[in-house]
Amino acid sequence: MNGAVLEKIANNDAETVNDSAVGGLKSAGKNSPDSAVIQSVTNTDSENFSFKDFVLSSLKNEKLQTISVGIVSLSFGILIWHLATLYNFNYFINFENVPSPTTVGAAFLSHLGDAEFYKHILISMRRILFAYSIAVVLGVTIGVLVGRSRIARAAVLPYIEVIRPIPAVAWIPLAILMWPTEESSIVYITFLGALFPIILNTIHGVKETPEVLVRAAVSLGAKKMEVFWHVVLPAALPSIAAGLSIGMGISWFSLLAGEIISGQYGIGYFTWDAYSMINYPDIVVGMLIIGGLGTLSTYLIGLMMRPALRWKKFQR
């Protein structure tokens, strides 16, 4: 009998949820000018056009819209660049010696058949992968260890605050003195760039873990390590993910500085070399390659984190 009552309450709840969803749809239909569109769709295509499909299709449209606006915006920027170089714009900012988009494009195309060019890119990517991986492991570990304890935070944060503002370029002399090989000093500089945002975001995420969730876990029988794996780490994950993205961006940023040391390869070296050879189009090619690879790798990090953050989109 009690079971039956429970069942009934459960059903009632389900009905009210349905009702409110339908009600929401109805009222939206009444008030918004889109109602005619919704109705015509349901009339002509009466098969299975549900509310969910409607949301999904409009979401797709939204994504399409975002992408197309981005493309238009980028094209507009290139157009300005083109016009500025075409008319030798020189008012405070001087474009007279800046290579035009077409010369840069031509230089880029000429490199595409060049094996050396790919080697530059591949070696840079290898350095990023190596340096970034170490930064992730170390940064998340330190952040998590330090985040839960106020005393540990107080001990570690001063180091971070002092070292963090030092630009990657400033590290070059010391890196060369400290590390046995050229390669290791480049990786070190790249690693440093990624490390701090990862540590700081991890600390922040861990610190912001809702106390009620820790209490809930403890009252369910969780010991320290279980609280850590099941509560603290997942709670910090959105913040850690943000740190990973920022860290990826900064590691590309630092890579260029590191590769100034390198006498041979790397896209940073390529750019620096173009500068010393006064090859202006190649400077811009190098810059854009760094920008493009940085964007791509940050996007990949986001993609990799997405499954672990699936729950996040339901949070209100």
Partner: peptide
């Protein structure tokens, strides 16, 4: 608890 205390990632 008074606050919602389910683990949002589970």
């Amino acid at each position: 608890f008074q606050q919602y205390s389910l683990f949002p990632w589970k």
